[in-house]
Computed example of a mutant assay.
Amino acid sequence: MSLKVNTLKTEVLVQCTEPPQAPFQFHLHGEPIKTVEHFTYLGSIDTQDCSLNMEIQKEDKLCLTSIWPIVRDRVFSNNNLRIGTKAAVYRIVISILLYGSEIWTLHNCKKRILENFNIICLHNILRLSWKDKTTHDELYNRTQISSIETIMAQRHLRWLGNTMRMPEHRLQRRILYGQLAGGNKSQTKELKFAYTVIFWYIER
């Protein structure tokens, strides 16, 4: 029994630190393989420049077009539901919005976009308007829902804990505990990635 690769269903995604001088060409058994700028793998979008823009836009579109109208009309606008019930439903929306965020590295502008969506939803849960002049901390306390940055930090640390408990031969753990192969120790400061991330969260 042998494995046969279907060239019509196979795509190649090239990720480079610098733009290539000429487009890459890949062939299998003399047949060319299509080179793409992005493709979806295990539900997440991988791109040539390793950007998260398309991934966030996909999650935002899913929440805003498919989930948000239903939740807003049937849950947030329902006066017969308690705040705790609405918050529990919204946590499901957050889990969809932040799918795969355990390994995200976001810029501040992307964090603000996600946090603005979070604040709008919290206002809807509490049936508040912009005229009420409610602080973000009050919204978090009344709904028992944290900010997006806090939720992502918890997800990152949970992922780190799961990876650190893996057997030593697992690739994820080897990368997490990886060190620089060369260079002067005083210059490279061979800090392990795991400890670097943990110390960063502690300092914050």
Rank of each mutant, 00 (worst) to 15 (best):
R82H: 11
V5N: 04
E190T: 12
Q172I: 07
W200C: 08
K192F: 03
W104K: 01
T65F: 04
Q187E: 12
R127Y: 10
C16E: 11
Y41E: 00
I113P: 02
Y99G: 06
R165T: 04
L52Y: 14
N80D: 11
K58T: 15
C63F: 00
N141K: 15
I120N: 15
F76W: 12
S146I: 02
K58G: 03
C16R: 08
A87Y: 04
T85F: 00
Y177L: 13
Q21K: 00
W130I: 01
T17K: 09
Y41C: 11
L139S: 07
V75M: 07
N78P: 04
C16W: 10
S129D: 03
S66R: 09
V14T: 04
Q57G: 02
P20K: 04
S186Y: 13
L128K: 15
K61F: 10
S129L: 06
R174V: 15
S146Y: 03
G178P: 10
I120H: 12
I145K: 02
T40W: 01
V36M: 00
G43N: 09
V89Y: 09
S186W: 14
G183M: 10
L157E: 15
K4I: 02
S66L: 07
E31S: 11
I103K: 05
I94Y: 09
P32L: 09
G100K: 00
E203Q: 11
H123C: 13
N184K: 13
F199D: 02
L42T: 11
I119T: 12
A87N: 00
V75K: 01
E115Q: 15
E55Y: 07
L180H: 05
C121I: 08
G161A: 07
W68L: 13
H27W: 03
P20I: 08
R82W: 00
L98T: 12
E59L: 13
Q25M: 01
H156A: 02
Q15W: 10
L139I: 06
T40C: 14
R127C: 09
L52V: 07
I103G: 03
P32Q: 07
E102I: 10
I175V: 14
I103F: 12
K133L: 05
N118H: 15
H136Q: 04
P69D: 03
R74A: 08
Y90K: 05
V5R: 05
W159N: 00
T163R: 02
N6E: 02
E115S: 08
E138H: 08
P167I: 00
Q48I: 03
K86T: 03
I70N: 10
G43T: 10
K58W: 06
M166K: 12
G161C: 04
S95E: 13
V71N: 09
F39T: 11
R82G: 15
M166Q: 11
V75T: 05
Q187V: 13
